[in-house]
Write a protein that binds this DNA or RNA. Structure first.
Length: 925
RNA sequence: GCCCUGGUGGUGGAAUUGGUAGACACGCAGGACUUAAAAUCCUGUGAUCAGCAAUGGUCGUGCGGGUUCAAGUCCCGCCCGGGGCACCA
């Protein structure tokens, strides 16, 4: 009887569902374990072989933990709001709700074929009203809270009103406007609008004005990646920046806790680095430079505040640079530079922030104005340049060319004289960002080492009132509204310019069905086109929707209690399941999703809805599987294709060929001719009778014809083979190319395993004989490695070890059930179908899923001797088997008596013999 | 530009803490079984030099230096690929 994987897999997938073996209970005597995948956006393209990589890893881990005696929560759902569905609706007239449902059906059928152990009763979809009701509810909590810096936690905005009523805001600096000051009497005198405007500046979810990419021709706001070189990706229309009212989350209030929380979780160091850098905490100073009034200057602000992290370089300032968006720019621009400056501003307005940051070309313009140095009184020119970003610090910098590379290039490019304050540390051609130089030309800082001068400068700035210490974060408050349709509506309506919340009884605010998703008037999203919906009592509804990360910021909580009608997740459920023990997903979510969900968790914790404030205890990043494209070379202007090895002799155009038409690199020329009508008459210049394609590793994408669908692989080799092969490809964390060819090896392994139990003609061949020590050793060595490596997510080496184990047992002709049944329990997380089938065939009742993971009996693994590599001067020359309890002198005597060692010694005495027990021996001559 | 990450045979990769580089597979070559094929099994397979062979020498983990008895692994400087950079998710 052969290994008939199709029958086996279908049979068990049906039986497992019928028996409800994957149902998870919130009450159990077993300890809990929560394994979570980053849930997918259900795109129309379906799954390719890259997607399930992380899902397979987490599935194996979940099954492993179950064998280890845990009550394992392993849910799946869909992040089903998002821009592509909306775009698809605009292009094809199919409503997002419809296409999303179709896509989810497709995803589900693809996932089911792979044999995952998800508890589908807990499935969630972020676009379900039952789900986003609670997303809206959490938004209301954010809206109804402020961050009390004294207590370091979110508190109710009602408490803040009470505080204002009693003592004004003197104890609680306004995060939205730190210059805002009012007394209790002021507060009591304010009208409703004024009070609400102030409260808005404290709320964790608040409204403000922010710049967006505005495309007049399309009448809509564009995402950064929809803008290319200042024009829209669709249609190529000009895109400019425009200020629109936006919702934000005050994540900056959590910056410090997001930083310190990193020390309590197991994320990779690189992941922690990325988050740390994103938060970008820096210590520095704000320095006030008085503006020397230009002729046309009429405003009342006379000070330009700059932010610097290097107050020690205060006397190396040669010019100041302000961001083009800086509020003082219109006042700073002075004749005769006015025209040039305005032309420059127009140019900058056409560029995205990313383009500006990536720009290597130096651009800028002199404003015509000067500031006065706070200590020397020198006149310092003020420039405008796009390399200074308005959102960071004060939007203005003091440029110190001798110490900062960008400032240096700027000074050189515009011929601005450079002051040297670090003596020989500056070579005149390149900035030196050292902190160890002794300062010169630096007034009261002369003679100090820069590192120490910082504190001196800070004190002086503060004591003279020219500046102050300032901690800054690169992180900005998170924009939380989108001018789009396919997202959660806000439970907010506006009246007299005041935002009011809808009563909780009215949640969910259901997204009204729409056919035509054209943008609304004046930069509004499509909901702006629905006057009936928009009107709410005597006000109007908020017509923005929430961004993609709203639903994904708390979904891990809903899985714990997915059907709860009373609350987003009961304290009982969240206290039982607690943190996600292992969270698996791609690094592309390193900063966005992970930081937002960490913040939401902290807010819910502060408000008492959760007992823990870090959502994920351990994070594992899975790599991407790249496509392995195949290329053909068409001789220019002909329909003739030249094989890759001969293409140098021709002028060719390169074309992507569907990978299914190619075996290895050899093109099936007949299939190619049938692929597209254009190629029907193609002819070929062959090498050695074959057409060889070029190859290239790149993103797996329809456009490159390199997409491999898991369904096809499962159909051809089975889910167990597919699961193991995905793991065998390499470390989960690493990016790697997909090459279907190697899958044969894994498939052969499963067939070989099968033959340990079943002979093709004789049927079952297992025996009840007592195993030998060699058999126990082969088994336990495998089990130990499987256990260790599974625990540390090294699944590729586990698959290798299973191959080694099965190879050894096959060589030993071992058909003993005592050995083999332990082996298949250990293998069942990796290849559940074949193991369950064998489990049943060998006479067991019930499922293999709940067996205990076999315990290693270490007496079979004890070694008494080791084959040591013996090196001469670090190069291995021979091998000697020596008892493990040998002493240094035993080893020296043995080694020196060895013929090969003697040959290399050439009669001389060795300088030293290094003996590292259980590792190696090195003879130094 | 900034941040992160990777680079080891023809290919995917292994080497967990500085200690036998290339485990395990794929591919390839040769052989067994078969009328034949498939399947299966066996042998070999980093490069290079010497040798009929057993075997032995040299080189070898992107490049150039360094530390060490010993470096794929640690340090310094470079080159190349991939991801992220706030409205793709």
């Amino acid at each position: 009887m052969e290994y008939q994987f199709r029958e086996i897999e279908k049979k068990w997938q049906q039986k497992w569902i019928a028996d409800g073996v994957y149902k998870v209970s919130n009450t159990s005597a077993r300890p809990k374990y929560y394994v979570l995948d980053m849930f997918p956006y259900p795109s129309g393209a379906g799954l390719h072989v890259g997607h399930p990589l992380g899902y397979i890893a987490s599935d194996i881990f979940s099954r492993f933990k179950r064998l280890k005696g845990f009550n394992v929560l392993h849910p799946m759902g869909y992040d089903s709001f998002g821009l592509p569905a909306e775009q698809y609706a605009i292009e094809h007239g199919i409503p997002p709700a419809v296409s999303t449902d179709q896509n989810i059906l497709n995803f589900r059928s693809q996932l089911d074929k792979i044999g995952f152990c998800y508890d589908w009763d807990r499935e969630i979809r972020t676009s379900d009203a039952d789900y986003y009701k609670w997303t809206q509810w959490i938004f209301l909590q954010l809206f109804g809270s402020w961050y009390n810096r004294k207590n370091n936690k979110a508190e109710s905005i009602k408490d803040l009103e009470q505080i204002f009523n009693e003592s004004g805001n003197q104890d609680h600096i306004c995060p939205g406007d730190r210059n805002l000051r009012f007394s209790a009497a002021d507060w009591q005198a304010f009208d409703e609008k004024a009070r609400q405007d102030i409260l808005m500046q404290y709320r964790l979810a608040f409204c403000g004005y922010g710049e967006v990419n505005w495309c007049e021709a399309l009448g809509t706001v564009l995402a950064n990646d929809e803008v290319i070189n200042g024009v829209s990706e669709r249609g190529g229309f000009p895109v400019v920046k425009k200020k629109l009212r936006q919702w934000y989350l005050r994540i900056t209030e959590y910056a410090d806790r997001l930083l310190s929380g990193l020390q309590t979780v197991e994320f990779s160091d690189s992941m922690k680095d990325m988050q740390t850098n994103w938060i970008g905490k820096s210590y520095g100073a704000e320095v006030d430079f008085d503006i020397q009034s230009p002729e046309n200057y009429a405003g009342d602000k006379k000070v330009l505040k700059v932010y610097t992290t290097r107050p020690d370089t205060l006397f190396g300032v040669d010019f100041l640079v302000v961001a083009p968006e800086h509020e003082l720019v219109p006042m700073l621009i002075a004749n005769p530079e006015q025209d040039k400056a305005e032309a420059y501003l127009q140019y900058v307005n056409s560029r995205s922030e990313r383009e500006r940051m990536a720009e290597k070309k130096i651009t800028g313009v002199f404003t015509g104005s000067y500031c006065l140095h706070p200590f020397t009184g020198d006149k310092i020119p003020v420039w405008i340049s796009e390399y200074v970003l308005a959102g960071y610090g004060t939007g203005a910098i003091m440029a110190v060319p001798c110490g900062d590379e960008r400032d240096h290039k700027f000074a050189e490019h515009f011929n601005i004289p450079i002051t040297n304050i670090i003596g020989t540390h500056y070579n005149g051609t390149e900035a030196n960002p050292t902190k160890d130089a002794v300062l010169e030309n630096s007034h009261f800082l002369n003679g100090l080492v820069m590192r120490d001068a910082m504190e001196v400068a800070l004190q002086k700035l503060e004591s003279t009132g020219h500046g102050k210490r300032q901690v800054n974060y690169k992180m900005r408050d998170a924009a939380f509204s989108r001018q789009r349709y396919w997202g959660e509506p806000f439970p907010i309506y506006w009246k007299n310019g005041i935002a009011y919340t809808l009563p909780i009884e009215e949640l969910p605010v259901v997204l009204p069905p729409m056919e035509d998703l054209r943008p609304g008037p004046e930069g509004e999203g499509p909901l702006g086109n629905l006057p009936d919906w928009k009107n709410y009592q005597d006000g109007i509804r908020e017509v923005n929707t929430m961004p993609g990360y709203a639903g994904s910021s708390w979904y891990f909580l809903r899985y714990m209690d997915p059907k709860n009608k009373e609350t987003f997740c009961s304290r009982e459920a969240s206290d039982y399941w607690g943190q996600v023990d292992v969270y698996i997903g791609g690094t592309e979510h390193a900063v966005g999703h992970l930081l937002y969900s960490r913040m939401w968790t902290k807010v819910l914790f502060d408000l008492g809805y959760l007992g823990h404030e870090e959502p994920y205890r351990r994070l594992v990043n899975q790599g991407k599987i790249g496509g392995d494209s195949r290329l053909a070379y068409r001789v220019r202007g002909t329909n003739r294709f030249v094989s890759a090895g001969l293409k140098e002799g021709y002028e060719t155009d390169e074309l992507h060929i569907d990978v299914s038409l190619v075996n290895g690199v050899e093109l099936d020329t007949e299939a190619f001719k049938k692929w597209k009508p254009d190629f029907h008459d193609a002819d070929f210049i062959l090498e050695e009778g074959k057409y060889r394609c070029g190859t290239r590793l790149e993103k797996m994408s329809k456009r490159y014809f390199n997409v491999v669908n898991p369904d096809e692989i499962v159909e051809k080799y089975g889910a167990d083979t597919f699961r193991m092969y995905e793991m065998f490809l390499g470390p989960v964390e690493q990016d790697k190319p997909w090459d279907t060819k190697g899958i044969e090896g894994v498939h052969r392994f499963l067939k070989k395993l099968w033959r340990l139990f079943v002979h093709e003609e004789k049927g079952l061949v297992i025996t009840k004989d007592e195993p030998t020590d060699a058999e126990w050793k082969a088994l336990y060595r495998t089990i130990r490695k499987v256990e260790e490596d599974t625990e540390r997510f090294s699944f590729n080496t586990v698959v290798s070890q299973f191959m080694i184990g099965v190879n050894e047992l096959s060589d030993l002709k071992c058909h003993k059930v005592a050995i083999l049944e332990k082996l298949i329990i250990a293998l069942s997380p990796y290849a559940p179908h074949i193991c369950e089938e064998i489990w049943q065939m060998t006479g067991h009742e019930g499922t293999i899923l709940d067996q205990p993971f076999p315990e290693v009996v270490s007496k079979y693994l004890v070694e008494t001797a080791k084959a040591y590599p013996v090196a001469i001067n670090g190069k291995t020359r021979t091998e000697m088997t020596i008892s493990l309890d040998a002493s240094q002198s035993d080893v020296e005597a043995l080694v020196l008596s060895d013929a090969i060692v003697q040959k290399w010694l050439e009669g001389k005495a060795p300088k030293k013999i290094i003996y590292v027990k259980n590792k190696m021996i090195n003879v130094v001559i």
